Simulated scan of single mutants.
Amino acid sequence: MFKIGIIGAGGIAEHMAETVAGMKNAKIHGIASRDIFKANAFAEKYHIPRAFGSYEDMVKDPELDLVYIATPHSHHAEHAELCIRNKKNVLCEKAFTMNAAQAKKLVALAKKNKVYLAEAIWTRYMPSRAAVTKLMDSGIIGEVRYLTANLSYSMANKERIVKPELAGGALLDLGVYCLNFAFMFFGNKVAKIDSSAKLSKKGVDENESMTVYFKDGRVAYLTSAMNARSDRKGIIWGEKGYIVVENINNPNAINVYNAEDKLIKSVKLPEQITGYEYQIIEAMKMIKAGKLESESMPLSETVFVMQTMDKLRKDWGVVFPQEKKL
């Protein structure tokens, strides 16, 4: 049985606990929170054998095969480093770190310590990704010209997204999905990016628009926001029609339309527990094979996405308090 520990006992951690509870070959072995009462309540709710009142105590548990980091973006680097230095394999929530410098440091540290390290950007691991790629390669919509993608939720009441000290803002929480959607299907050969953002009074991005120009001539138009609800669609546009991905955050349908807007194909996606299981399945596979990174989300791609977001934030003037101290 593959044993997983979770750092952080918030909503995302609960989602992972629910996921693993539905898997046959994995289980949550430990939950760690700075608040032991919170850890105990979480462990009782999800029938987890061990609860820890410190992250340091949990990563010393010799039974753990993998640690999933579910804390705010601002703390990902610190908690991942703690795991790596204790020789623990790591699956870290997106955005992977606060910036690219932190990401590069973790990648080097994981390589030195010979542990698995991957970003938990779940859409990279889902079957929907291969399904969309297959449709594009089939020529069903002809030559692909551009794509559009949006992801917005009304989240302005959540601390982790509004506070600069928690590396808040729409980009690292929502825009990261739009960028990954573009890079999954158009690659990472980017010529330039034009963008604009509206900042909050606290100095984080409330919403943004990004136009990504690729070296092969294709273009991606991306939008995200923390203060509105969008339709979350990703659409890939070709000369003969278009592919619509319903909800780029967790695709539930893929439909293909011709140039007359007639539905010509629908792809049925497999039933899932929550969608989080695919990143765990890959982690299990890679770790058992002795691999140190994901095939679906290589560390070089994680660093590339972080570098892209660093550049965007620089253009907008978004600097987190921790970065001002550097």
Rank of each mutant, 00 (worst) to 15 (best):
K27A: 13
P49C: 00
F42M: 11
K45C: 03
H15P: 01
A13V: 06
G8R: 09
M1C: 01
I48H: 00
E44P: 02
M1A: 07
I28Q: 05
I48P: 04
I7H: 06
G5T: 00
V20F: 13
F42V: 06
S33M: 07
F37D: 15
A32R: 06
I28K: 06
K38V: 05
I12Y: 14
I7Q: 11
G30A: 13
N25M: 09
K3M: 03
I6L: 15
A43D: 02
A26N: 02
N25W: 02
A39D: 03
I12R: 13
E18P: 03
G10R: 01
A26S: 12
I6C: 05
K38E: 03
M16N: 10
E18W: 09
E44T: 09
G5Y: 06
M23D: 05
M16Y: 15
K38A: 12
I28F: 11
I4H: 11
D35V: 03
G11I: 13
I28P: 08
M23Y: 04
G30T: 15
Y46I: 02
I12L: 13
T19I: 04
N40L: 07
I4P: 11
F42Q: 07
N25F: 06
A32N: 09
E18C: 13
G30W: 12
E14Y: 04
A13W: 02
M23C: 04
H15D: 09
